[in-house]
Simulated scan of single mutants.
Amino acid sequence: MITREIAEMLVKETSKVMNLNINIMNEEGVIIATGDPSRLNSIHEGALEVVKTGQLLEITSENQGQLRGTQQGINLPIHFHDEVVGVIGITGKPRMIGDRGGLVKMMAELLIKQAYMASQTEWRQRTKEMIIEELLKEEPNTSNIERWLSLLQMKLKGPFVISLIEIVDYSFSSHLLIKNTEEVIGKGKVLAGFVHVNKLLLILSEVSHEEAKKKLTNLHKEFERMQVHARLAYSSHIDHLLIINQGFCECEMALAISKSEHKVISYLDIEPEALVHQIHPKLAEPFCKRILQGEGDLNNHLDTLQAFFDSNFNIKEAAKKLYIHRNTLIYRLNKIKTESGYDPQNFNDAFALQMAIWLHKRASSPPN
């Protein structure tokens, strides 16, 4: 139970508090950490006696010669889960050590408990990430997923919503971010794990799309409170655990094509654009060129059209967004109609123009 790393930490920490030489022995009585390097890896027969009896043992000038590898001092059992997992030895005259031995023992057991809890947390998180890795495969292994979920005593039931959080900057540990995420979403209702150094994937279970939206909006607010700069995307409804990869792809697409100032993005809100982005470039290029005529004013056209479409064809609102007079906007829309043959105020023509803008945006974007 006691590794050399834990034992060395015990010696270091206890020596800071007590000006005494500390030895840590394992269950075989071997000294695995000590303030006296000459005694490292030697057998301590006093420790073997303590492991056997579970009782404190004092080594005095009278009995020192009877137990190999010992010096004057006291040896106390280190208990964990009601078992003796090692022995802590304090060198010195027993009467001079006094009650300090009990304090050192308590400190040792506390450090071991903390180390154990940390290792359990690390193990649980690694198991969660193994489940996520398996679910993101094209053909997940259901038996592995069920076994790992059973070890975690977790059940994931649909419907699901997937969220991908792109973390730009943070000073907190990954463990703390995941802990806070689980508390906001609800423990037992989310599987969270990093899929990249700065991308945290969440699988929300037994949740409606509207409930997921509320939870994830609250989560982003919590991140802002923690001063964690992040963008968050979430998928459409996913009915089955084995198609989680679909939701992950939707989130990746949502983050890739949405504006950087958008912090919480629903895939459903950008789905038409996402579908357009999947059109093969050989088909997209001639379509885009044919519609977006007038190369000299191309960028001006794009800004004008997008503002008009974002305003739901409302000329007054679009002009306000562009900081221009409504008559100027009407002039530009007429110019676009003349140059391209497509009327931005006609639904079918507007749809074609919007597709062309999205395709142009994709072509102009640097590759990932």
Rank of each mutant, 00 (worst) to 15 (best):
N41K: 15
N312S: 15
T53I: 00
A318V: 04
L149H: 08
K320A: 14
A284K: 06
L135H: 07
I203W: 01
E138P: 04
L67K: 11
L177R: 11
E139Y: 10
H301F: 09
F80M: 10
V276D: 09
I2A: 00
L191Y: 05
H240I: 07
E58P: 02
V184T: 15
A356C: 06
V17A: 12
K214A: 04
I257C: 05
G158Y: 04
G158D: 02
A108C: 13
A307G: 09
L329F: 05
E222S: 15
D169A: 09
K187A: 07
D36K: 15
D269F: 10
E5N: 15
I185Q: 00
T181G: 02
A352H: 14
A108G: 05
V168K: 11
H262A: 12
S365C: 07
H325Q: 14
Y323P: 00
N21E: 12
H262F: 08
N63D: 10
M106P: 01
G92Q: 07
V264R: 10
S119D: 13
G101C: 09
G46W: 01
T328R: 03
I78R: 04
T3I: 01
G294L: 09
K259T: 03
N75Q: 07
I88Y: 01
Y331V: 11
L201D: 10
M130K: 12
L333G: 02
S173N: 05
E83G: 00
A318N: 00
Q125W: 06
Q227N: 15
T14W: 03
N198F: 07
L283A: 06
L242Y: 14
L67W: 14
G86P: 04
K289S: 06
L359E: 10
E8Q: 15
E28A: 04
G89D: 03
I330G: 03
G294F: 09
L191R: 09
I131H: 09
S173G: 08
M253R: 00
E62D: 11
G92H: 03
I330V: 14
K320W: 02
K282Q: 09
G29A: 00
S143A: 11
I6W: 08
I330R: 13
L177W: 11
L298P: 05
D297E: 15
V228R: 12
L329Y: 05
N346R: 10
L201F: 08
L67E: 01
G294A: 01
M1E: 00
L275V: 11
V30D: 02
T217S: 12
